[in-house]
């Protein structure tokens, strides 16, 4: 860690240079080019999103970063060291796309097992285990075997194990897959918290809204090649348009302003009422239901 920190004030946490990964068949003949000439840098404190359709090479890229796959060409460095180096793995947390946990271990035993692999002492293990069980909302199921868990619960315990070592780099492969909206929001909040703590997060997802909400930078892959990369705002902002949002609901005033803008810009401006996104609305309803608020259903909701 010190070596790495001493090299540069802002060195990349993850660095892929011209990485190519070719899968071969039994006779060593090339079968699939999963990733081709990929170069990416992820810096400290970033939440980096890997986007792409199925089969675009997102998971292969992540596995290459973790050392689970070896690059056929190019170079992968994590914290300045080759991928898979034991010293760097101690600073990495990983949530795979599915929960590959030991079905016969309970949630608590699962966290304890992975904590031991990181060499945490007994007191720290206990503290981290309880903290994370609370964080992912599994205290009640702490002594149940993971094999009995629903998919959402499995994702939660998977996420907890990814954080057991308080990692500097967290790699999350489809972290919200299988989670309910509350869980999705919690995960996204968690990712933001991690970023706020200065940790680096690499996130792979094909749920674009998730990525948009939490990522500071993204890369879009297609057929194993990099098609776009940059800050989310940079990539998404349309500098040819301007939107004003004002806390005034007077239709007459809006009409006058629209007329003035039409006159100034020479074209018809769009005027509407901003709406909440569905996730926020859902969470609002669920939160109020959880707080025991009674009364009429929320505006617009239909009765069965």
């Amino acid at each position: 860690m010190n070596d790495f920190d001493s090299q540069s004030p802002t060195p990349p946490v993850v660095e892929l240079r011209h990485v190519t990964k070719v899968f071969r068949d039994f006779w060593r003949r090339p079968k699939v080019v999963a990733v081709s000439d990929l170069s990416i840098e992820v810096r400290r404190g970033e939440v980096f999103g890997l986007l792409g359709p199925n089969g675009s090479g997102k998971s292969t890229t992540i596995k290459t970063i973790l050392g689970l796959l070896h690059a056929s060409a190019g170079e992968v460095r994590v914290f300045g060291r080759p991928a898979g180096h034991t010293g760097t793995l101690a600073r990495v947390g990983y949530l795979p796309e599915e929960s590959y946990l030991y079905r016969y271990l309970t949630a608590r035993e699962t966290l304890d097992f992975y904590a031991r692999l990181f060499g945490l002492d007994a007191a720290l293990r206990r503290r981290r285990t309880e903290e994370l069980l609370r964080l992912v909302g599994l205290q009640q199921a702490a002594n149940r075997p993971v094999g009995e868990f629903s998919k959402g619960m499995s994702r939660r315990i998977g996420l907890a194990q990814a954080l057991i070592n308080d990692p500097d780099l967290v790699i999350l492969d489809e972290p919200t897959a299988g989670l309910d909206p509350v869980g999705c929001r919690q995960v996204k909040d968690l990712i933001r918290d991690l970023a706020a703590q200065g940790k680096t997060v690499i996130l792979s997802s094909h749920l674009l809204a998730d990525v948009e909400h939490v990522c500071s930078r993204i890369a879009i892959l297609f057929n194993g090649t990099l098609r776009a990369e940059g800050g989310v705002r940079e990539l998404l902002v349309n500098r040819d348009l301007v939107r004003f949002t004002v806390p005034c609901a007077d239709p007459a005033l809006a009409g006058r302003m629209a007329a003035w803008l039409r006159e100034q810009c020479g074209s018809e401006p769009a005027v509407d009422n901003p709406s909440m996104n569905l996730e926020s609305f859902f969470l609002d309803v669920v939160q109020r239901a959880g707080e025991g608020t009674t009364g009429a259903p929320a505006r617009g909701a239909s009765r069965p």
């Binding site: 034991t86 990983y94 599915e98 590959y100 992975y114």
Partner: peptide
């Protein structure tokens, strides 16, 4: 084959 090893292999275990 059950892929549990993926989670173990990304830990600092030799």
């Amino acid at each position: 084959e059950g892929r549990q090893m993926r989670l173990v292999a990304v830990k600092p275990v030799r």
